[in-house]
């Protein structure tokens, strides 16, 4: 564990807390893509199949449980909570996310570290996480306006990815055999998807104005 990895995990956790706070405090999920949230739930369940077979640390196990539970809770709220579900921007959230699931799984069958069920699901989760933000970015682009909490949620998610890249650079320089092509290449792709959002986020921050994305 290095400082970048810890900062990445903490901003990831923070992003989920901000999202839960938004949903809980405003009883609304407007501006949030349910499809992206469903993809994250699939990502965590698929990736943490090793929860019962490999023990790494208490920290590791705790975080895995938090990520699985929070992502399922968010999807549950958006689908079934009587007030929250009413605020869902159904007509804006039309990205065909099942294609992402299919393509990621196909890629995992071709590119994986080992040909085992767990490893294929692990690779699948890495590929799917890389593109899972797309429905969310498309929804924001369509609605144009981004409320503060939604903007911060995506900012922290992007920060989490940026810190993971620093973590890999650090590990590459300090660990003799650190070569993780699948995770690193997917991670760079994932972070690149946030570049546009970050650009407009910083502009609005600099001008102290409301975050707006161009149509």
């Amino acid at each position: 564990m290095n400082i970048f990895r810890l900062a990445g995990d903490m901003t990831h956790l923070l992003s989920i807390l901000v999202l839960l706070l938004k949903i809980y405090a405003t009883k609304s999920c407007s501006g949030i893509s349910r499809k992206t949230q469903e993809l994250y739930a699939i990502v965590f369940v698929a990736r943490y199949l090793d929860l019962f077979t490999d023990f790494i640390s208490v920290y590791n196990t705790f975080m895995k449980v938090v990520f699985i539970a929070s992502s399922l809770a968010i999807v549950w709220c958006m689908r079934f909570h009587p007030m929250v579900r009413r605020s869902y921007d159904r007509e804006l959230d039309t990205f065909r996310h099942y294609f992402l699931v299919g393509a990621s799984f196909a890629l995992a069958l071709i590119l994986h570290e080992k040909f085992t069920v767990q490893e294929i699901f692990w690779a699948f989760s890495i590929y799917l996480e890389a593109v899972a933000i797309l429905p969310q970015l498309v929804l924001l682009q369509r609605s144009g306006n981004v409320d503060n909490l939604t903007g911060q949620y995506i900012f922290f998610l992007g920060a989490y990815r940026a810190f993971y890249i620093l973590n890999w650079i650090y590990r590459y320089l300090t660990e003799p055999h650190f070569t993780r092509w699948i995770a690193c290449v997917s991670g760079v792709v994932q972070t690149a998807l946030y570049a546009d959002f970050f650009y407009y986020y910083f502009i609005s921050w600099k001008n102290n104005s409301k975050l707006k994305l161009p149509a």
């Binding site: 895995k64 660990e175 055999h177 650190f178 070569t179």
Partner: peptide, 10 residues
């Protein structure tokens, strides 16, 4: 090159 065993990242 040798690979670190298991996936230690989240």
């Amino acid at each position: 090159t040798e690979q670190t065993e298991g996936h230690d990242e989240l």
